[in-house]
Structures are given as structure tokens and as C-alpha cells.
């Protein structure tokens, strides 16, 4: 499906680099500044989180990094490539190969089984059946859902759904996982469970994790905490 003008990773010291990132949303006659002059870099294998109260700009920043949204000004480079310079196909390719998304509300495809949900990304990559099967079963094993592979999303609990979403994000072994409030709909036990899973994948696969959260339970796992307030970086434990 994606084969022309593919996204090519270039060498760079940072896996993610944001420079002078600003995002304005039009509101009435004027506009509302959701992000203001954000400068950030992430290295491969980080387990970092954007934290801050609701409305501080976490989701907006995550979406811009994931090329789902565009900044008003400033630039973002992912895997050494300027995101704003990518064609629609290239940014789709970037998301398909290199970025795994985990959403607050899971966003599983309702008509697909657990197995098929996890497999979908690999189908887009045109992987053959064998490769897909191996990768999907491995990903389901990571999150402990091998037993539920034939269940539909409607039959799963919140914790199970989010674990499927993690498996779906991880099955392609992406360079980066962007997780927006992954624990918001989960109880404490499930929250810890998925975070431990992600922590393990981070250390085994060197996947870079970037969270957006205001959940204390999540924060205690983060190696690096970036505090946002009113669209500005208030504090970064790395600097």
C-alpha cells in the first residue's frame, strides 16, 4: 500500500527534536495558544512523560510529534526527518512503521478480533501470513492476552483493551510509542500492570516511550518527567 516515496530514517543524535514549537487554535476572532515555544529533545530508549493539568497542551504536543497534527510555527524532527516536509504518504508510512499510538480510549476496531486488531498494522505493511502470525502471537504474549486472541473488543475489560492497544502499538517494534493518558480508564492494578509491561518492552526492545499523563501512578515509572503548564515547559527532570 505504501511503497512510493517511503519515509527514510536519517542519522540523528535525537530520535525526537522539537524546536520553537508553537500551536495556536483559532477561537472566536483571535486564537488560543496551546503550545508556546517548546524546545525538547529525546534520545533513543527514553521512558519519558509529559505531565501537567488538563489543558496544559500534552495531547497537542504528542499529536504533533506523531504527525497527526501540524504546528503553527517551529519544527519537529522525528528519526532525523523534518515532519512538516513529509508528504501524506510519507507521514502515513512514518506512523505505520515507526510510531505506535496508545490512546486513552483504546481505539480498537470493533469488528475485528483481538488477533486481527493487532495484525492490522502488519497487514498495512504487507507482511506475509507467517511473519504476521509470529509477530502477533509474540505481542499478545508480551501483554498476556494469548488466551483472548479470538475475543472481540466488546468482550474485553478496560485493562484487557488497553493491553491489546499496547500489543497493537508494539507488534511492529516501532522506534517510538506515544501513549496519551493510557491509564485514565484503568484501575490501579491494571495501571501498574500495563506500565510494568511497557517498562519491560522499553528495556528489552529499546523502544522510546513518551507519555502524556496527569496520573500519579504513571509518573512513578517515568525516568524523565517534563512538566507542562499553559503550553510551556515548566520543568524537565533531564535538564
Amino acid at each position: 500500500m505504501i511503497n512510493v516515496k517511503q519515509f527514510k530514517r536519517t542519522e540523528s543524535k535525537y530520535i525526537i527534536r522539537a524546536e520553537g514549537l508553537t500551536k495556536d487554535y483559532p477561537v472566536g476572532e483571535g486564537h488560543f495558544r496551546a503550545l508556546s515555544d517548546i524546545n525538547l529533545t529525546f534520545s533513543e530508549g527514553e521512558f519519558a512523560g509529559l505531565v501537567g493539568p488538563s489543558g496544559s497542551g500534552k495531547t497537542t504536543l504528542l499529536n504533533i510529534i506523531g504527525s497527526l497534527d501540524t504546528p503553527t510555527s517551529g519544527s519537529v524532527a522525528v528519526l532525523g526527518r523534518e515532519v512538516s516536509a513529509l508528504t501524506a504518504k510519507q507521514s502515513a508510512f512514518l506512523r505505520n512503521r515507526h510510531i505506535g499510538f496508545i490512546f486513552q480510549s483504546y481505539n480498537l476496531l470493533p469488528v475485528y478480533t483481538v488477533y486481527e486488531n493487532v495484525e492490522f498494522t502488519l497487514l498495512l505493511q504487507k507482511k506475509n501470513r507467517e511473519e504476521r502470525h509470529k509477530a502477533v502471537m509474540e505481542a499478545l504474549d508480551w501483554v498476556g492476552l494469548t488466551e483472548k486472541k479470538d475475543a472481540r473488543p466488546a468482550q474485553l475489560s478496560g485493562g484487557e483493551s488497553q493491553r491489546v492497544a499496547i500489543a497493537r502499538a508494539m507488534v511492529k517494534r516501532p522506534a517510538i510509542v506515544l501513549a496519551d493518558e493510557p491509564s485514565a480508564n484503568l484501575d490501579a492494578e491494571n495501571s501498574h500492570h500495563i506500565l510494568q509491561t511497557m517498562q519491560q518492552l522499553n528495556s528489552e526492545l529499546k523502544t522510546t516511550f513518551l507519555f502524556a499523563t496527569h496520573d500519579e501512578k504513571v509518573m512513578q515509572y517515568l525516568q524523565r518527567v517534563i512538566s507542562l503548564r499553559d503550553g510551556k515547559i515548566e520543568k524537565d527532570t533531564n535538564s
Partner: peptide
């Protein structure tokens, strides 16, 4: 819509 957003997040182009 959410499903559409998910397809795009998973790597489908708007055209697809």
C-alpha cells in the same frame, strides 16, 4: 470518526 482517526494513526493515508 474515531475509527477513521485510528486508521490514520495506524498508518493509512486519507486517500486509503
Amino acid at each position: 470518526q474515531k475509527e477513521i482517526g485510528t486508521y490514520v494513526a495506524l498508518g493509512m493515508t486519507p486517500r486509503e
